[in-house]
Amino acid sequence: MQIKLCEQVFNPWQEIEQYQASLTHLAGKYGATGVFVGSMRDFNQGDDVTSMYLEHYPGMTEKQLQQIVEQAQLQWSLLDSLVIHRIGEVNPPDVLVLVAVWSAHRGDAFDASRYIMEQLKSRAPFWKKETLVSGQHRWVEKNTTGYQQESR
């Protein structure tokens, strides 16, 4: 398991490739890699957004992410996992988050990657301050449901 917070732009596909290359002890053991990549949109709550600043609580954020991944490992048969999340200044269309899990079977990979992402959105201590096109700043008070139509 690897959890990383970073201030720099990163390429999620390179990160997966590099991390997977280090999993030599798992060669032939995984049949599925579940991946979620989240990018910053240029809109939120009906407004155009030019940038966002992500704050976190050092130490606490990493610990919470580790607990989330450990809970996923208890529920599904995972061989390994990688979570990378941006902090600091982020601009559209920068990648915000990568969640990747390796397992023998697709069901575990699909379900665990979704679980980790949903728990991250609801439990991990990140605070987001958006800069709107108008120049105004506002704190994001709640995350979306993850669907285009909020009623789902």
Rank of each mutant, 00 (worst) to 15 (best):
K4I: 02
K4V: 03
L5S: 05
C6K: 13
E7A: 11
Q8H: 15
Q8R: 14
Q8G: 04
V9R: 14
N11C: 14
Q14V: 15
Q14A: 15
Q14L: 13
Q14D: 14
E15T: 04
E15W: 06
I16G: 07
E17W: 12
Q18R: 14
Y19S: 03
L26R: 05
A27K: 15
A27Q: 14
A27S: 15
G28W: 08
G28M: 12
T33W: 05
T33S: 15
G34I: 06
F36G: 00
V37R: 14
V37M: 15
G38H: 11
G46D: 00
D47K: 11
V49T: 09
V49H: 08
V49S: 08
T50N: 02
S51P: 02
M52R: 00
M52V: 05
Y53D: 01
E55W: 04
H56R: 10
P58N: 06
M60F: 08
M60R: 09
M60T: 09
T61M: 09
E62V: 00
E62H: 00
K63R: 05
Q66A: 01
Q67C: 02
Q67V: 05
I68F: 00
I68Y: 00
E70K: 04
E70N: 06
Q71I: 12
A72R: 05
Q73T: 12
L74G: 15
Q75Y: 04
W76L: 15
S77T: 06
L79V: 04
D80M: 04
S81P: 09
S81W: 05
L82M: 06
I84E: 04
G88A: 11
V90T: 08
V90Y: 12
N91E: 13
N91L: 14
P92L: 02
P92F: 01
P93Q: 02
D94P: 08
D94K: 05
D94G: 03
V95A: 10
V95L: 07
V97D: 07
V97I: 12
V99H: 12
V101R: 07
S103M: 06
A104V: 03
A104L: 04
D108M: 05
A109D: 05
A112T: 09
S113C: 13
S113T: 07
E118P: 01
E118D: 15
Q119A: 07
L120P: 01
L120Y: 03
A124G: 00
E130L: 09
L132V: 10
L132C: 11
H137N: 10
H137S: 12
H137Y: 08
W139F: 12
K142C: 12
K142D: 14
K142P: 03
K142Y: 10
N143F: 04
G146Y: 00
Y147V: 07
Y147S: 14
Q149N: 15
Q149V: 10
